[in-house]
Design a protein around this nucleic acid. Structure first.
Length: 930
RNA sequence: GGGCGGUUAGCUCAGCUGGUUAGAGCGGCUGGUUUACACCCAGUAGGUCGGGGGUUCGAAUCCCUCACCGCCCA
């Protein structure tokens, strides 16, 4: 019936099935009639992804919220799904093709390749969904969505076309972050800058009209660069306008070595007089800053690289303009097609030969890398599609300013605002195949048609050209334009796709059916909470805010909960290369999903990183076992659920006490979850279960449970079963599997049928309290704890039962002692408990509240040790009293502290004083009566 | 360079809006086959709350400053 330990591996799959068959997580399942809604959209993991600690944490917290609200009777939707992860997915499939020796993406063509990706997705995509299920995430899997789904793709098309018509999406030629490995543009956010030990190369650029002499500084100007190879595309040299060293040179020209182009020296504040020589070479086509300088000073743009960041000079019109091809033949021959880093070496060597190299310094500087490809990004001049993020950011910022959306913890607002205020145009086109193809078609006259469908484009184009149009692939279309044949106008569609985050930005409403006006959209939008890591604020939160505000005119979520980053035990960021990755799946295998969940929740204090340690997970696995055994114990003692149990008719004090504590624990858990203080919630239920219910209630109950049948026993049995039910409910959001299992088992053992699964059971409502019971039980607990402590300090052998004599008690103490006699004897290992007016001689004594508890231990008590022990406490209390007196005698304290605090101090003093008197009396009794 | 956060017991961390004997888990030590649980029980040691200054009757908590650590953005 009950195994000795909880076997997570055996039980979890079974419970998962129970939930699945009951469709327990379906939107609205278990809700009260006319319930408020509570909705969360999952931050969609990559379809290529697998569960890591960050997912485990984030989804545990979401699940805690979702299960909590579901139990409170709300109409809950937790919307799951995955995103299509453009680059990552394309990479996975291309790697697979390579491994099979199959034709490459380009060889097989777009259509065939996309078929392959869909095939891959069907076979092995979305593994993470099963892993989330394993974790116990109670998402409505029947509503699973994917960013490339038909509906979501429809939303993408609608948004793109509308934004374009509103002028908020446009095509522009600018420098982009170009990834030379994946051959696509990426956004600013996908670039990671890393510190690199590089070189600062100082070149001498000869002044035009002078004869270059390496030994005569008046014949050249020295420029420093970390990227010597870009000198091929230099179109200027900049010096600071206030830099007197160069004032005379501004407006004159230098001759670019090796190339021979004459370029101008311009004055521009971008140049930092303190850095290097104060003169910098300007390559507007290959550097973001230089681009701006070039624009200000009307310098030419010369692109000298191809898509793969290899030097491209042959037939490069911009480069060759104004130069003598013949003279450059050797240079072009040597460099053309050479990788940028090879070209760097070659150029530095040639410059040195020509005497143009002044020096090379070691130099630490920041280099941008593609976060997926890991190769240095090349600023590259291309045509791309941009979203006017600045315009969209306004309302998105207002929503937060007006507290329609609140960040928790609130300080993340600052990060959000900082970024939003300095937002740059968002480059949304990607030179990939896997993704939403941009709905833009090009005509021979340069006209661009942006429409949702080809049919719409045809209509627009025929109006525009007043001729019939046909569609073709890009190459064919270009060829047709070239030929200029009469007849139909040929259009081709933009080959690029949209950034994955573009579709993710629509997630809170596209998953609910938008642009259709669905009931779900009306019901669940705006969503209640978005939970995510801070690293995603820019990528995702900000963009969802922009899109939500723009298209629905409502913020997409009421609260943005930003959780901590999960780190390893030592606080280092987990990464595959460091090998310090802790795999949540392994932890679940070893300790169970519940233990992992509880650990993550318990460690999710706001504003702090979560450092995951195996010992913690193990500790909470032990907690699961503890509860399991408590229930097992209850079962062995015939604690059956009484469907008619009414706390208000309970009479035994310890039961009234534990019911009060249960209420308190319930309030604490509720308040903590409402405030997103998951760690406090976890701690509250842990404490109540272990330290209150198991350690004291069950222990106090044992003598009764093991005794004869009587009304008191019946009541304690029923209370035990009732409190276990309360614990199961409060713990369920954190440990759903264990609690659901126990919910079933306890019902079976009690021979009752539950109205619902635990997942739909009603959350405990604050009800029962009895403050008077506390005094009695606290006294007993105190007494037992003190006796145990004294016994241990006096080295009383564990096997020896000592007598307990309570001195100085009132009638109520006597009642209490009588009532709990058996429990005290058991817990404090006493042979008898009695009351007396005088302390027995040779006793170990301890002050408990208002009474002195004596252990007459003839022959066992070391009087000197006793005196020391008691004196130590006297000293401590005297110090306390001194401190309190210090406060109370300070007129300013009396004047300024609030009355309550003063009263508190007075009470404290009185208590201490009373205790002191008792202690001194006890010490006095140790002296032999002369 | 700008911004954010951290520094509390050997370790990992709580401690919200100032008044507690500064807590928990793990680990340590001592003792325990008490008919739920050794994934357990009982007891116990261990902290001048990073340094300095200030505000206050009163500071781990608020302010300033320094040091160190981490992250984000340039």
């Amino acid at each position: 019936m009950f195994e000795k330990t909880y076997d997570a591996a055996a039980i979890e799959p079974r419970i998962r099935n129970v939930w699945q068959e009951a469709e327990a997580f379906r939107a609205g399942a278990g809700a009260e009639r006319d319930a408020e809604t509570f909705s969360i959209v999952i931050p969609p993991p990559n379809v290529t992804g697998s569960l890591h600690m960050g997912h485990a944490l984030n989804n545990t917290l979401q699940d805690v919220l979702v299960r909590f609200e579901r139990m409170r009777g709300k109409d809950v939707l937790w919307q799951p799904g995955t995103d299509h992860a453009g680059i990552a997915t394309q990479m996975v499939v291309e790697r697979q093709l390579a491994a099979e020796g199959a034709p490459t993406r380009r060889e097989m063509g777009r259509e065939a390749f996309l078929d392959r990706v869909w095939q891959w997705k069907a076979e092995s995509g979305g593994a993470i969904k099963g892993q989330l299920d394993r974790l116990g995430a109670s998402c409505d899997w029947s509503r699973d969505r994917f960013t490339m789904d038909e509906g979501l793709s429809e939303a993408v098309l609608t948004v793109f076309v509308r934004l374009h018509k509103q002028g908020l999406i446009y095509r522009d030629k600018r420098l982009v972050n170009w990834d030379p490995k994946f051959l696509t543009a990426i956004s600013d956010l996908e670039v990671e800058s890393k510190e690199v030990n590089g070189e600062l190369v100082h070149f001498r650029y000869p002044l035009a009209g002078k004869t270059f002499d390496p030994d005569d500084p008046s014949t050249f100007i020295v420029v420093a660069t970390t990227r010597p190879e870009t000198m091929l595309g230099d179109t200027g040299v900049a010096v600071h306008p206030d830099d007197e060293r160069y004032t005379d040179l501004v407006g004159t020209k230098v001759v670019l070595p090796l190339v021979g182009r004459e370029i101008e020296i311009v004055a521009d504040a971008y140049s930092d007089p303190e850095k290097g020589t104060g003169a910098v070479k300007i390559t507007p086509a290959h550097d973001f800053n230089d681009f701006e300088v070039g624009k200000r000073n009307k310098l030419d743009l010369i692109n000298v690289f191809d898509e793969q960041a290899a030097v491209s000079l042959k037939g490069n019109e911009a480069f060759l303009a104004g130069l003598d091809d013949a003279a450059l033949a050797a240079l072009i021959d040597a460099l053309d097609g050479l990788d940028r880093f090879e070209a760097r070496k070659w150029i530095v060597a040639r410059m040195e030969e020509g005497g143009y190299l002044e020096k090379i310094e070691k130099h630490v500087h920041q280099v941008p890398f593609g976060d997926r490809s890991g190769v240095p990004i090349e600023p590259f001049l291309t045509d791309q599609w941009y979203v006017n993020a600045k315009r969209l950011a306004g309302p998105a910022m207002d929503a937060v300013r007006e507290k329609k959306t609140q960040f928790v913890p609130a300080n993340w607002e600052k990060t959000y605002f900082d970024w939003m205020e300095n937002i740059q145009p968002w480059c949304v086109s990607r030179q990939l195949w896997w993704g939403h193809q941009i709905p833009a078609w090009y005509g021979p006259d340069g006209k661009i048609f942006v429409e949702r469908t080809e049919a719409d484009v045809r209509r627009q184009a025929e109006l525009h050209y007043r001729e019939s149009v046909t569609f073709a692939e890009r190459d064919e279309a270009l060829a047709a334009w070239e030929r200029g044949d009469g007849g139909a106008i040929v259009l081709y569609r933009d080959e690029d796709v949209l950034d994955t985050w573009f579709s993710s930005a629509l997630w809170p409403f596209s998953t609910l059916g938008w642009p259709e006006r669905t009931p779900e959209l009306r019901r669940y939008y705006p969503t209640s909470v978005l939970s995510t890591g801070f690293d995603i604020i820019f990528f995702w939160v900000a963009r969802m805010m922009m899109m939500g505000m723009h298209f629905l005119n409502r913020e997409p979520f009421e609260t943005v909960y930003i959780h901590a980053l999960v780190r390893d035990e030592k606080g280092a960021k987990m990464s595959k290369s460091k090998g310090n990755v802790v795999d949540p799946l392994e932890l679940m295998d070893e300790f169970g999903a519940d233990a992992l969940r509880f650990t993550l929740a318990a460690m999710a204090a706001q504003g702090r990183d979560v450092k995951i340690a195996k010992a913690r997970v193990q500790g909470y696995r032990n907690f699961a076992t503890k509860l399991w055994n408590a229930v097992r114990f209850a079962d062995m003692n015939a604690c059956r659920i009484d469907p008619n149990f009414d706390p208000n008719s309970v009479e035994t004090t310890q039961s009234r006490w534990v019911l009060t504590e249960a209420t308190r624990a319930g309030e604490q858990v509720t308040e903590a979850i409402e405030a997103f203080r998951f760690n406090d919630a976890a701690a509250a239920i842990y404490r109540f279960t272990w330290n209150t219910f198991c350690d004291w209630y069950l222990e106090l109950a044992k003598p009764v449970l093991m005794g004869e049948d009587c009304p008191e026993k019946t009541e304690i049995q029923a209370t035990t079963a009732y409190v276990i039910d309360e614990i199961l409910k409060l713990l369920h959001p954190f440990m759903p599997f264990l609690t659901e299992e126990l919910w079933t088992v306890t019902a079976e053992q009690s021979g009752i049928k539950r109205d619902t699964l635990l997942v739909h059971a009603r959350w405990p409502h604050a009800g029962y309290t009895d403050d008077t019971a506390a005094a009695e039980i606290n006294f007993i607990v105190d007494l037992v704890a003190n006796v145990r402590s004294v016994r241990s300090e006096s080295n009383v052998p564990a096997s020896l039962e000592a007598e307990i004599v309570v001195v100085g008690g009132a009638q109520r103490h006597e009642d209490w002692l009588f009532r709990h006699d058996a429990a005290i004897r058991r817990l404090a290992r006493a042979s008898a408990v009695s009351v007396s007016d005088v302390a027995p001689p040779n006793s170990a004594q301890v002050v408990v509240g208002d009474v002195v508890v004596c252990l007459p231990l003839e022959g066992l008590v070391d009087l000197d040790a006793e005196r020391t022990r008691l004196s130590k406490e006297v000293t401590r209390i005297e110090k306390d009293i001194q401190k309190i007196d210090g406060r109370l005698s300070n007129p300013k304290f009396l004047e300024k502290a609030d009355a309550e605090t003063v009263e508190e101090q007075r009470d404290k003093r009185q208590e201490a004083e009373a205790r002191l008197i008792k202690l001194n009396a006890a010490i006095g009794r140790l002296d032999p009566v002369a």
